[in-house]
Write a protein that binds this DNA or RNA. Structure first.
Lengths: 234, 234
DNA sequence: ACCTGAACACCGTTCAAGT
DNA sequence: ACCTGAACACCGTTCAAGT
């Protein structure tokens, strides 16, 4: 809408790391700590400055703006995901599965990443490394041309689309297990006119939400992999 | 982390709509206009107040806080999605497909919804209506018990996970087609060390990104539906 | 080369006060 | 019952000035 130019940290030459003062790595590390502790809304340039014993605006020497900082921490997330190299796995499904589990695990471990992933262009070195490995895995599986990308995107889309709501649910619960009961009651009340929904609500006891989510992930993942495999033989 | 209580508009009795002054509907409508025009960041209580010729803080009489307002507009999004009733379709795949296309279309039409969907508990009447219809569709397909939910969730996860990055890409481009070329160049430069990625980059010409995305969606959707169908026969 | 503080233009939200 | 304005505690970012 606004005629803003597209820009990204990855398109600018980084400032040569002379390292007398602060460094980008140090800043990114501190930012991740803040994010893990206080979430996406808890990260402000001022707080981050304070954490580094720096003036509120010193960071602007290392980073053009907050968005760039987020691009940097975002790439760290991709760095924590594992895509086993093809030699280590027997077939592509194993690689794909391992990646999917790892991606979900990383997002759940850094819930703030759910607000970044998919919303920030993934052009950092770690993100590209993952994309490259995934690409090779699906090529090895037998996909050709653009379908290599389609297959990889389908897999990550599933993980993303499953995990974001999981994080949202966790945050809504805000670590207050007492509340689960009250929310449940509210959902049940809201579902009053929907017998199909109520029926299922009653099947899962409050305690097993974690388990239910794991089953749902396994179910969906198997479906996605089956579906991709089907595309391979036709 | 903070011991916040879970709360939602849908759990509070709405204020009786006496309608001398403003009404919730009016506010929600204005909020959506603002959102469509200026995006998620463009919506502020002050701006919305101004748009309604009201003091900046008048809205707090109708809505507990901004989050509640967002829950309200969020449910409107679900209201725009269509799930054809089973009588109208020949089999469940047709229903599922129609819903998936509709969901994607709605999100692309209201890009700001990408920042809400999956991140806000979907407990509004429209969201529940969609969930109920989807539930019936997958039940009709032959799924049983919790698998009805798993199947529906897998489908929406795919749509969500595919569409969020699409929106992100659109926003990054910010309507400036000139930039597409420059971004492409940057991506290519960044991908220098990844021959597999470069190979594919060159296959798709700048102009066809829309088309490529549509193909990718069709590909992934077919895979997901095949995968779900496979779960049905075993 | 690096860091600072003041300043600007914003936020969401509370609350006493008005009609 | 509804609306207001002032006030509070925040934001991101710019920029002239310091060392």
């Amino acid at each position: 809408m606004t005629g803003k130019q597209f820009s990204s940290v990855w398109m600018r030459e980084p400032r040569p790391a002379r390292t007398p003062g602060r460094s980008r790595e140090e800043i990114v590390r501190a930012a991740m700590e803040l994010l893990d502790a206080e979430g996406l809304d808890g990260l402000s340039m001022r707080k981050l400055g304070a954490k580094l014993d720096a003036g509120a605006t010193s960071l602007y020497w290392y980073v053009a703006n907050k968005h760039e900082l987020l691009e940097l921490v975002y790439d760290e997330i991709w760095g924590e995901m594992t895509v086993p190299p093809p030699e280590e796995t027997k077939w592509w499904r194993q690689t794909a599965r391992a990646f999917a589990l790892s991606m979900r695990e990383v997002i759940l471990r850094h819930p703030w990443s759910a607000g970044l992933i998919g919303r920030t262009p993934a052009l950092g070195p770690n993100a590209l490394e993952v994309a490259g490995r995934l690409s090779r895995a699906f090529k090895g599986a037998g996909f050709r041309g653009l379908e290599i990308d389609y297959a990889a995107s389908t897999l990550t889309a599933f993980v993303l689309g499953t995990t974001i709501p999981e994080v949202a649910y966790n945050e809504a619960m805000a670590e207050d297990p007492l509340d689960e009961e009250s929310m449940r009651a509210a959902v049940e009340r809201a579902s009053a006119g929907h017998p199909d929904l109520l029926e299922r609500l009653r099947e899962s006891k409050p305690a097993d939400t974690t388990e239910v989510r794991e089953m749902m992930f396994a179910f969906g993942l198997a479906a996605v992999l089956d579906g991709l495999e089907a595309r391979l033989t036709t």
